[in-house]
Simulated assay, not measured.
Amino acid sequence: MLIAFNKPYGVLSQFSPEPGSQWRTLAEFKLPSKVYALGRLDADSEGLLLFSDEAGLNSRLLDPDAGHRREYWAQVEGVPSDAALKELARGVVIAGYLTRQCGVRRLDPAPEISPRMPPIRVRKTVPDTWLALELVEGKNRQVRKMTAAIGHPTLRLVRVRTGNFSLGSLAPGKWRELNATERAAVFA
């Protein structure tokens, strides 16, 4: 079984709570028993999280050498220059590691997505920009670290696609099992 879940802000990518944590867990969403998350999204990140009960899918989807694409939409502080976006696409050094090349483009107009609760902080004197980033790797908080490395911290981060499967209109906090065509799109 392969399940798509639209993880809301403030939810850990695990079923058990962290001691002393204020974050919610996956347990409240009544996913089928015996499924596990294929990858992770930080509690302050949102969007497409896949679940399966099939062994071996994690490495098939997450090994950077397999080149499996994931697209994120990042709302960043400020307006990155073309040179900054080229630097991001070539790879930036984060924590002593050079990230792999990635696809990056501005999203203009800004995407229409569900509002986040609580909303991001808004500064009247600092504009923001939405970027689409397509990566084949996913280190801890990588997109946030990458945008910060070019001087544009991430304010909101949403994973919208894995392979050729997009989140689409699946509402935050909802999940559904994928059909054969959608499953093939995940691995495309």
Rank of each mutant, 00 (worst) to 15 (best):
M1Y: 04
I3T: 00
I3P: 01
A4Q: 15
F5N: 02
F5C: 04
K7H: 02
Y9I: 01
Y9C: 01
Y9V: 00
G10V: 00
G10Q: 01
G10M: 03
V11Y: 07
S13R: 12
Q14A: 13
S16W: 13
P17N: 05
P17F: 02
E18P: 01
P19N: 08
G20H: 03
S21R: 04
S21C: 02
Q22Y: 02
W23H: 14
R24M: 05
T25P: 13
L26F: 13
A27Y: 04
A27P: 01
A27F: 06
F29N: 08
K30T: 11
L31Y: 04
L31A: 13
P32S: 06
P32E: 02
P32A: 11
K34W: 10
V35S: 03
A37T: 04
G39I: 10
D42Y: 12
S45D: 08
S45G: 10
E46R: 03
E46A: 08
L50T: 01
F51P: 09
S52I: 05
E54S: 14
G56A: 04
G56I: 05
R60P: 05
L61T: 01
L62F: 00
D63P: 06
P64N: 03
D65A: 15
G67H: 09
R70L: 10
Y72D: 06
Y72N: 05
W73L: 08
A74K: 07
A74H: 08
V79T: 13
V79A: 06
V79S: 01
P80R: 10
S81H: 10
D82P: 12
A84C: 07
L85S: 12
K86N: 09
A89S: 15
G91E: 09
V93G: 06
I94L: 13
I94V: 15
G96D: 11
Q101H: 11
C102K: 00
V104S: 00
V104F: 09
L107E: 10
A110M: 04
A110N: 00
P111R: 07
P111K: 10
I113H: 12
I113Q: 07
I113W: 14
P115I: 04
R116C: 11
M117W: 08
P118L: 00
P119S: 05
P119F: 07
I120C: 14
R121M: 07
R121N: 08
R121S: 05
K124G: 13
K124T: 12
T125K: 15
V126C: 06
D128A: 13
A132V: 07
E134C: 09
E134W: 01
E137K: 09
G138T: 08
K139L: 14
R141G: 01
A149K: 05
I150Y: 07
I150T: 09
I150K: 10
H152V: 07
H152S: 06
T154A: 15
L155H: 08
L155C: 11
R161F: 13
G163C: 05
L167Y: 10
L167F: 08
L167D: 12
L167H: 11
G168T: 11
P172S: 04
G173P: 10
K174H: 15
R176M: 03
L178E: 03
L178Y: 06
N179V: 01
A180F: 01
T181C: 02
R183S: 12
V186S: 08
F187W: 00
F187E: 00
A188F: 05
A188M: 05
